[in-house]
């Protein structure tokens, strides 16, 4: 069942195809940059960093579930 209780915006729905292409390039570039930096040992973790990465690791849970990807 789909809820239409607020306007998602037709333009916003259509625009995401274009947004995703540019985002794909940026994400790909970032991963390459990260790999190169890691290979040459240039990757620095800032001690001031407060925010972690987007990925949530289910292994950190006490009882991992089978549903994990």
């Amino acid at each position: 069942m789909e809820f239409l209780y607020f306007d998602a915006g037709l333009g916003a729905m259509l625009a995401q195809a274009a947004v995703a292409v540019v985002a794909g390039v940026a994400v790909f570039y970032k991963s390459i940059k990260y790999k190169i930096k890691t290979i040459f040992g240039l990757h620095k973790e800032s001690s001031e960093e407060v925010f972690d990465d987007i990925d949530v690791d289910d292994k950190s849970l006490k009882k991992p579930s089978k549903n994990d990807q």
Binding site: Q16, A17, A20, A23, G24, A26, V27, I54
Partner: peptide, 10 residues
């Protein structure tokens, strides 16, 4: 995949 790219880049 496209959706993940949008979310990761944001």
């Amino acid at each position: 995949k496209g959706l993940f790219n949008i979310i990761d880049s944001l």
